[in-house]
Design a protein around this nucleic acid. Sequence first.
DNA 1: TTGTGTTTTATTGCCTCC
DNA 2: GGAGGCAATAAAACACAA
Length: 278
Amino acid sequence: MDSGRLFFDPSCYGNMVLIGNGDPVFSGARSLLNMEETSKRRHFFSSPNELFDEEYYDEQLPEKKRRLTPEQIDLLEKSFETENKLGPEHKTQLAKKLGLQPRQVAVWFQNRRARWKTKQLERDYDLLKSSYDSLLSDYESIIKENQMLISEVISLTEKLQAKEVSGVAVMVAHKTDAVLPVNEADVLAVQVSAKAEDHLSSGSAGSAVVDDGPQLVDSGDSYFLDSDYRGCMSHIEGIHLEEEDGSDDCRCYFPDAFAAAEQQFHEEEESLDWWVWS
DNA sequence: TTGTGTTTTATTGCCTCC
DNA sequence: GGAGGCAATAAAACACAA
């Protein structure tokens, strides 16, 4: 950009004027209060050559950028609140009121819109950030809850296995009497299933975990939760204990563990049936 | 006082709309 | 093609710490 043109571009500053003492017309309330001084004004630069004219500098320093007065800014702000874009008439009217060039008013509005846009972006960012923080917090609590539930499943499964071992012992002891220890195992399986279903279907946090997890992932509000969620699940210890398919897709959290446990019961039931009836 | 960062005023060039 | 808007930028004015 050729900034040297800044103060003597006739297209922009042909009407830029100075009052007798060198103050610019837009330099303050004076321009609003003493409009009659217009007669003392003269063009800022009549030609670019004046910029290099030493005599000119001696008697007239080049005009400097001046800030608008609080009064001018106040009126401009009020106008901006009403409408953030200026029609030609409104611009001229406002310029007269303020003692400014219409171009200055237009520039002020343009810059004001740019500032507003920046602020708006900041507000949007803050909003998104707080939303993200809230989601992250929810996500972390869900993960904790999930880990707790998985621990519970593992503990119950271990108890079940212990029961099963003692059941087999009983069965061996009563083999000749054809006692059917499979019933005991079934009862235990039903108890475990009932407990699991209780977690899943009751209004407890447990159901929220199972129901809300995938929603969080699929919500579309976050691009990263899906992979993170799976990644987290894959790191939960013990999750593969009951897996029989050897899969490692990290999707098999505790419902799969129950399924595996139940499958184990059924397999053992079959073997016991075979053992009993043979 | 001075160096430095921020804000404000203004220009330039490009784009869109009528 | 002219008017007006916007993004990028320059530069003056201002704020403030050292």
